[in-house]
Every structure is written in C-alpha cells, then in structure tokens.
Design a protein around this nucleic acid. Structure first.
Lengths: 325, 325
DNA sequence: CAGTTTTACTAAACCGATTTAGTAAGGAGA
DNA sequence: TCTCCTTACTAAATCGGTTTAGTAAAACTG
C-alpha cells in the first residue's frame, strides 16, 4: 500500500531510475520508443504517483507561494486572493493562504513557517510592524510582493490603490451634493491605507473651505465603534453624510443606523471605501469606492512570478485607481 | 544568502549533524550542557532555519492536510474551512484549501495533486462523481473525511447535517402559519444534500395532506433560476412561500423579487437553507436553517487528525442537527 | 575499416534533514 | 586492576527523486 517509488517502476520496466525520471519530465529526446512504452506500462501497472516532496528537495522549488492576509474579514482580501489563485493556477503554482488577523506576531510566525516550508515566494498584506523582517527577506533576494498597504522606507514591489485621491474625490462629490457636515469613521490609524484615506478626507474639506472638526472624525476599533457613533449622532450639529473607512466599519455603521431607526440615504448619506458582496441586499443604493481587486491580485501574482523566475525588474509601487459606484 | 544548512551549523558548533538534529528535536537527554549552548549560539549566529521539505521526506509526514471544497461560493464552505483551520492551528498542522468548483475533473486533479504533495490527509466536500477514487484512497488506508455531502456505498468517515429532517420541520412551520402554496427552488439534484432537502419538503407536504405540485418545484442552475422563477410567479395560483435550497439560490431569489417589486415577508415568505453573512442587511427578517458549521468543521478535523495518528476507530457518519433562526 | 558522432541509456552524487548502529571516554563495581 | 555501564557523542544509511558525467553500441564519415 502506497509506496510505489521510482525505483519500483524502473525495476518493473527493466530500466534505470534516471530514465524513468527523464520520462516523467517529458524529456523524450534520447529515449527509444519501446523503452518509453515499457515505462508507461510499468507506471500504469503499479499505479505510480511521483513524490513532489522528494523532487522539491533536489530542485529547490516547491511550486508553492504563500499569501499572508492582514485580516481575512475584509472582503477585498478574499477578492485579491482569489485573483492571485487564478493566476497561480494558470502558471502551475499553488497558493497557500494564511490569516495574520492584524497581529504582527502571527504574521511573523507565518512568514517563518512558510519559508521553512520552502515556498517559492510571498505575497503579503503587511501589518506594517515587521519591517526588519521584510527588509531581511528583500536583502536576501527572496521573492516578495506587498499588497494593499504601503511599507515605509523599503525598496520593494508593492501593489496599491490611490487611497488619498479616491477619498478626496468621494468627499468632493458629497460636498457637491450640498453636504456640509461630513463625518469620517475609521479603524485605528496603524496602517497606511487608513491614514491616506483620512488625509484625502481632510484635504477635500480644506480645499472646499470647510473646516475639519475633530468631533466628526471617529478613530476606533470595530468593537467600540457603536459607542463612538452614538456620541457622534448626539451632537447638536449632526452629520448629514458619513464616510466609512472600510467594509467592516460599514457593517458597524449599518447596524448602528438600523438600531437607531435612521434611514440610509434619507437621514444620512453613506460612502464606503471597499466593495462588499451582497450589497444589493440593501434597499437603498449606497456609494462604494471599489478597488480593482482582480487586477491588483493579478499584478501582484505576476510580479511575484517574475521574481521567482529571475526576471530582472526594478522594485516599484504599482498604484491602481479606484472607482466610485 | 539563504542556504545555511544543518551541516553549516554543525561545523560552526564543532559537532556532528546528528547532534544538531537531536538538538532541534529537543532530545536533550544525552547532550552536554556546553554542547547545547554551542549549538544554540551557532544557530543564532548563522541565522539557521530548518528545511521542512527535507525533514518531510525522511519523516513521511508533511504536517499539511488538504481541504477540497465543492464550491467556495457557499458560505458554509468558508465557515467549515475556518473551523478546520482553527483546529489545525492548535494541532500543529497546516491546511491547504482547494476549490473544485463543482467540477469532478477538478476535484480529481486536486486530490492527485495534494497526494503528490504528500499531504497527510484530506477533508473533502465531495462532488460525488469520483467514487472510484474515494474508494481507492480508503482502501489504501489513506486518511479521508467527507463533509456536508454523503458518499454512496462507502464505508467512510462523514460529517453531515440532517437535511431531510430540518427541511421537513421548516416546511411544517410554514404550513402551521397557514401557507398552502409552498414552492421549492434548488440547484440540480446531483448531490445528496439537495435530494435530501427535496425529500423533506415532499414528506412535509404529504404528511400535512397537501399535494406535491411539480410546478412548484424548481430544479435549475443558478444562471437559469431567474427564468424559472419568472414562470413560477406567473402561475395563476402563485406560491405564498418559497424554500430556497441554499445560499446561492437565495441570492438569485432576492434579486428576482427585487426586480419584480415583490416584498419579502409580505408578498412571499422565504426560508433559506444555509446561513448567510450580512443577513442583517436585509430589512425584513428571513428564516434561515443554520448548520452548526464550527462544530462540523471541528469534528471533521478531529476525525482526520485521529486517522493520521492511527487512532483506531470505526468509520461512521456523524450527523449534526440544524436549527431554524 | 578506422575514427568520429549520435543514440540510448546507466551509475552515482546530490538535495537537507532524520535515525540507527556504533564507539570512545569516564565512572562504578568486584 | 579489569570488566561493564553510562554518557555524549558521531558515521553512515536513508527518504525519493533529479542531474551530471560517463559509456557501450549503433550509425555515419571519408
């Protein structure tokens, strides 16, 4: 049971291991037609399945790549991961997805584990707290691509969206509709995306000669978001529009509004950064800033693939535009 | 760059490879305190990272398990996978998720690929079309657990829900509310879950002395669901309640109702088999039949783990109850 | 027909760990 | 003092492939 090895096939076919190996690697150039047939028969007869582990050891290549997602709860992560997987499928790679859960320690452990498993490269949605580790990988020439979030002071391949600009435009559109009191809700400003979005928000207000009020900016974890929203909506000058920093903030906001009996689109206008699935379940249409997830994933995979295959290229930030929907 | 091997550590520490290996495996019993220290220092100095591939080759154990999901689009799959991953995390295993996309050919390829990669076991949401392959794995004593769907005529470990009973009760509750015209929408009856749910539906109607009308039973792929629903709702005797066979059917139904301007809960009552996320986005509460995904995933992982570790146990079907919410 | 090239293979080293069998040095017991 | 255990290691085989260098036989060349 389950231990037919190449040596067995070789013996059965009456040839050497080397020839069987050549056969399996489809290098038929120097191989007699009848030998080929014999090997084929022997493989069939014994039900031989090659052992990729053994191959990997010698070839120093596992055909596996790792994806380390900062937090799998973001729909964007799933979308990008799927796009990466599709690319891998087409290029004879296999992707392993890990969830760092916004925890730098976990991220570090995953990076180490995946490298110990000899994956050929990593695509990382960085928590941003492991810069030393990122740097050492890049110095070693290990293939890495960062996605979604910028890493500071590192000359690395990155795939991003123009968070500042997209937010700027979104806020601008709210202002154009006559909104004066626009609030902004975001999770803690630990990563570049959130900071950039806040920057875009402030810039849009300033450029429109509206003043930036601290009371209108909520920076809070998801679990404490409800309380902060409560406070926001009990201000004497209530916001008429709200920008949700990402999909999870959005869900918190919807829940809050539902509880309070506030109507979306009527009592308060909402813009969300990130696409969410099931958006059509909501009665009132909402504005979303949609990032081109498939293209981003594809690009990231492509950049990684080229690094793995030693295609020379200078590290660069690839910035994709987002669209309001 | 990146090729510190055990031999390097051994040389640096002035000991043999074997001793380093013992050290790494925490078998300190027969090892001098100073040797231990020297090895520790050498590892630190060289930044040595062990190569799991090499270890796996010798140990014939990769600490990886494969999950082959029939269709990742089902929310249940994601939930169960997550639970399996959690279990693996706690037991020093790593899970690789593959999506068969309801395609038996793809499923087969994935099974072969994962076995070639020497994963220690497989958890499969079976498409049901590869019984020969399933059987040969089980015969070989390869660790396998089936989830969600029954495999016919096979003495294997399976984790399921009581589809017939849950559906029966759900339909019963509709009848109790006074509904007489209850329709049933489902994807093609290729897998046990769908057949079982239909059976429960029919049984409930019969037991309540209602007649089973073929016109009220839609069996269709998602893409053709809209047309079939159109036909259903243009019958002179319209259904007042509808049972959606799973989450994807539900989404199709919601889309259809929205287009037609029919109100959920008012014009037609809906029960859905499967939980869906973002359910709270919908204004009207809907009834869901929720399967205990975490428990199911956990159980499946546990059964696989025991098989991998040669814990003797008779193959059995583990049936979990579902709840209406 | 000797010399060269091509064809069709094989032996053996190698990848980087684990593991088994073996051994030298030091201490205990008689 | 000599034998017998421990203790603390090491050498070498092994896992199942890939790959390189090499070789015998056949085919070609002049």
């Amino acid at each position: 049971m389950e231990k037919v090895t190449m040596a067995d096939v070789a013996k059965e076919a009456g040839v050497s291991k080397s020839t069987v190996s050549q056969f399996l690697n489809k290098r038929f150039e120097y191989m007699g037609e009848k030998t080929k047939q014999k090997i084929e028969d022997a493989i069939e007869k014994l039900g031989y399945q090659p052992n990729y582990i053994a191959r990997s050891l010698k070839q120093k290549r596992t055909s596996m790549v790792g994806i380390i997602v900062a937090n799998i709860m973001h729909y964007l992560s799933t979308e990008i991961s799927r796009a990466i997987e599709d690319f891998c499928q087409d290029h004879d790679l296999h992707a392993i997805v890990c969830n760092a859960d916004d925890n730098p320690e976990k991220e570090k452990r995953y990076i180490e584990m995946l490298r110990a498993k000899q994956v050929d490269g990593l695509i990382i949605f960085p928590t941003g707290q492991n810069n030393d580790l990122y740097e050492s990988m890049i110095k070693q020439g290990y293939p890495v691509v960062f996605v979604d979030r910028r890493v500071e002071n590192l000359d690395a391949f990155s795939v991003l969206t123009d968070n500042v600009m997209s937010t700027y435009k979104a806020i601008q559109s709210l202002i154009a509709k006559g909104h004066q009191n626009i609030a902004f809700a975001v999770q803690p400003l630990t990563v570049s995306t959130r900071r950039d979005r806040l920057e875009g928000y402030k810039k849009a207000l300033i450029d429109a000669d509206l003043k930036v009020t601290d009371e209108f900016i909520i920076e809070s974890s998801i679990s404490e978001m409800q309380g902060k929203l409560e406070k926001l909506f009990s201000l004497k000058e209530r916001p008429t529009a709200l920008f949700a920093g990402n999909d999870r903030v959005f869900l918190a906001v919807v829940e809050f509004l539902k509880e309070k009996g506030l109507k979306l689109g009527k009592d308060v206008e909402l813009i969300v950064f990130d696409n969410i699935p099931f958006a059509h379940l909501v009665e009132t249409p909402i504005s979303f800033i949609v990032q081109p997830a498939s293209e981003m994933g594809r690009k990231a995979a492509e950049l990684l693939f080229d690094q793995i295959n030693k295609v020379e290229r200078e590290p660069e930030e690839y910035v994709f535009p987002s669209q309001m929907v």
